[in-house]
């Protein structure tokens, strides 16, 4: 919806002004989102052990400390495993559930809708304890990363349903009908028409799952076996404190994800051209 396409009654500057204001607003928005992260990164290079101004000397010692922390490295690995598996699982079941919720009418649909949202409504500490009671005394399972993943899928499922469903609302089903009329099999129709159209919703759902799971602490604590995940590691530094070592870790994560995402982006763009 570029302004150029609007009726050309006003002078040029009048069309540019809203656009400029919008861009300025967007810029401010990003400043808001990135200010804390900038602060975090700055303090990862600051020699003081506390996160407060004024800054002291430049140092890399917090990065050096990271290298020696085996518990932390193990936790990072566990976090990645849990997050990836949860993301795939929750995205699949969530997407599957979104279709009937949007496309079919059935009795009790409103209740089912609310029911699927329930896991978001109950505070995590309670869900965690409830799951632990189910897993150990009731089902006699051995706690492990698998039980963590099971719990995380419950937490993330509703988010995927919501995102995919909001994409499906208003989806033009005539496109599918047209494909079928032209003789496409249901599978072909799904892969070539439906799937590409809902893909942004599915990806958004996956991203949200990834994000939520990567940072989830309390349900993980109760459902995990003798391992630790990254948020657990960060949370447990309670008695004697967060060090800028964690800022260093966060900075590396920022640089890594930003790098990966932007590189992937530019690669995709190049291929598209």
């Amino acid at each position: 919806m570029s302004p150029e396409r609007f009726p050309r009654r006003s002078p040029r500057w009048a069309l540019r002004l809203p656009r400029l204001l919008l861009a300025l607003y967007g810029l401010l928005g990003f400043v808001f989102l990135y200010l804390p992260i900038a602060v975090l990164i700055v303090f990862s290079f600051n020699s003081s052990a506390v996160i407060t101004f004024p800054l002291q000397h430049f140092t890399l010692s917090w990065y050096r400390e990271l290298r020696e922390d085996f518990v932390l490295l193990g936790a990072v690995r566990n976090s990645i495993v849990v997050t990836v598996v949860t993301t795939v699982g929750a995205t699949l079941v969530g997407t599957a559930a979104a279709f009937p919720l949007v496309r079919t009418g059935f009795r009790m649909k409103r209740m089912v809708n609310l029911f699927l949202l329930l896991p978001i409504v109950i505070p995590g500490i309670l869900t965690g304890i409830a799951l632990l009671i189910l897993f150990v005394p009731v089902l006699n399972l051995t706690l492990s990363l698998n039980t963590v993943i099971a719990g995380q899928i419950v937490l993330a499922g509703p988010f995927v349903v919501l995102v995919v469903a909001s994409r499906l609302y208003g989806f033009n089903q005539q496109l599918e009908a047209a494909a079928m009329d032209l003789g496409a099999t249901p599978w072909r129709t799904f892969w070539h028409v439906t799937f590409p159209l809902i893909l942004p919703g599915v990806l958004a759902g996956a991203l949200i799952t990834f994000t939520l799971t990567f940072d989830e602490f309390i349900v993980t604590f109760f459902t995990i076996g003798p391992e630790s995940t990254l948020p657990m590691y960060i949370w447990s530094l309670v008695k004697f404190g967060v060090t800028p070592k964690l800022n260093a870790l966060a900075s590396i994560i920022v640089v890594l994800t930003l790098g990966t995402l932007l590189t992937a982006n530019s690669l995709l763009r190049r291929r598209a051209r």
């Binding site: 632990l132 109760f222 003798p226 657990m232 447990s236």
Partner: peptide
């Protein structure tokens, strides 16, 4: 190593999981 902060959390978990894990 599994880390925790509150006594009560560790107590509840030990009570439910026991020596097996």
């Amino acid at each position: 190593t599994s880390l925790f902060d509150e006594n009560a959390d560790a107590y509840a978990k030990t009570k439910l999981v026991g020596g097996r894990q």
